[in-house]
């Protein structure tokens, strides 16, 4: 699972460089996220702009990534494609994350 991180101001941006976060990738994803969010700023944004498909295991791994954050850290999501957005809305897991249409919008949070 290729996760690329970059600190922009006070935000840690983590880009998923894969087309799927699925059952075959879930454990690797969760482990990769733990490594990247172990230290660093309180706000993390997961850029899902390359991800075409998230299944329920991938969804579970994203939730697990949020639960394993340090105290005070938060995980926001950005750039969900239609099939990914559908999974979040259907399961109502869109209610527990701040979700931004694209990365530019996600980053205005920082400036504001």
């Amino acid at each position: 699972m290729d996760l690329q991180s970059e600190q922009l101001g006070e935000t840690l941006v983590i880009r998923v460089n894969a087309s799927r976060v699925d059952a075959a990738a879930a454990i690797q994803f969760k482990d990769g996220m733990r490594e990247l969010t172990r230290e660093g700023p309180d706000r993390c944004v997961l850029d899902l702009g390359q991800v075409d498909f998230v299944d329920s295991s991938g969804l579970g791994a994203i939730v697990a990534s949020m639960k394993q954050l340090n105290d005070g850290q938060k995980l926001d999501l950005a750039a969900l494609k239609p099939a990914v957005d559908k999974v979040f809305r259907l399961t109502r897991m869109d209610t527990i994350f701040a979700i931004y249409t694209d990365m530019a919008t996600a980053m205005t949070y920082d400036a504001g």
Binding site: S57, L59, G60, V63, A64, M66, K67, L90, T91, R92
Partner: peptide
């Protein structure tokens, strides 16, 4: 049955999703 988001579930969505879709 759909898991409640408030419990931050990491699984159990599969058949809820299949039946919904």
């Amino acid at each position: 049955a759909a898991p409640d988001p408030i419990d931050l579930p990491e699984g159990g969505f599969g058949w809820f999703m299949i039946k919904s879709l």
